[in-house]
Design a binder for these strands. Structure first.
Lengths: 205, 205
DNA sequence: TTCCTATGCTTACAGACCGACAACAGCAAT
DNA sequence: ATTGCTGTTGTCGGTCTGTAAGCATAGGAA
């Protein structure tokens, strides 16, 4: 669909944009390709626009947009803390393992929700179909009865179902092999599960 | 952290950017807020930059960037077809239910991989911990033994494990209640599972 | 063959767009 | 009393897009 030269132009636009966050001006394109005029750059941009891979806004500087980016929903960046979220409650930012960026409508949360993610270790939630290695997205809010929550117990975070019975909250593992946990003193809930991301696929056992 | 006025500025930048894909010039900011000069806009931008919520590039037009966007990994847009992917094999784009946008490193796939997503219906893969309602991301490529695949059978797409035994491929459900499927004629594999997204959380049964 | 269109360039110029700076000022909080 | 916030007037000079006019090559259609 695109000619070689046009592909080179497009690659340059993408590189420039991902490095600087901006789009190049026609003269910057000119210099990069060694054109003697910016008109050459303009005509290429026109060609790219006609083929639909970029959009231009007349009269405005650096006014190039990739159509995908325009149509895209708003993206949120969710920090991934390790398995251990201890200290989280103290609002101290601890080591981030990385970041998960995803559009809000796929996640189904409001844009202003405070969220973070944890990587699951162990099989205590296996009956809720959450397996070791899964990445769980949690929202920082009050838990409701039956929510799956990340709770801080003995300095370590675990994922359990939050159940209230007779006005008494306790934590329930979704695995027959694990006992229920009734809080000794107080129960610190770090977040409520709102989504799960599994990367790869459970390979054959 | 931000003053009211600065928040208004920032909101305007976000709105403008999400609508047009561009950033406003200082004079556009001026007009929007009714300033008598663009210097007012500039000084606000400087304040926002000092507080770290935007970055500016000196001397370039419309050269404002949100830091989150710069740090963000590359995002891919994955079309979500319905439960039924029939016709997919024919390369005909059928109704899209929506789009899943996520960064490539969280997904763990190469940027040029051809991917699509399907919403899972039924419980035939329950033992692989894939439940009804899950959104499965698939890559269009040749399956390997043990991969979980979307396959076209009788005009409907199902998710099964792809197994080769004695040079004979067949499809295996991950649920004791379902039988294995040996292809009557040929087996059309539409994609290989590379990730899974579960929205919400399996509420208490 | 001939016409026509798409590609890929050049030179030259107009004119608006745009960021930067200098200098100043009222107001609030520390 | 100084700093930060929120503005004003005015100007300078480079940036940036747009347009006009032209040239060469290649491929498809008439």
């Amino acid at each position: 669909m695109l000619t070689d030269r046009q592909q080179q132009l497009l690659d340059y636009l993408r590189d420039y944009h991902s490095e600087t966050g901006l789009m190049p001006s026609t003269r910057e394109i000119q210099n990069h390709f060694g054109f003697a005029s910016q008109t050459a750059a303009v005509s290429h941009l026109r060609a790219l626009e006609k083929k639909g891979v970029i959009q231009r806004v007349a009269g405005k500087a650096r006014a190039l947009v990739f159509p995908e980016e325009l149509e895209r929903e708003e993206i949120v960046d969710i920090p991934i803390y390790g398995h251990i979220a201890a200290g989280m409650a103290a609002e101290a930012e601890q080591e981030q393992e990385g970041c998960l960026s995803i559009d809000i409508s796929s996640l189904g949360i409001p844009r202003n929700a405070k969220t973070f993610a944890l990587r699951v270790r162990g099989d205590s939630m296996i009956d809720a179909h959450i397996v070791s290695g899964d990445c769980v997205v949690l929202e920082f809010r009050e838990p409701r009865n039956g929510d799956i929550v990340a709770a801080l117990i003995d300095g370590e975070t675990t994922l359990k179902r939050f159940v209230i019975q007779d006005d008494q909250p306790y934590l329930q593992a979704e695995n027959e092999m694990y006992p229920d946990l009734t809080p000794a003193r107080e129960l610190i809930i770090q977040g409520v599960m709102v989504a799960l991301l599994r990367r790869g696929e459970g390979k054959v056992a």
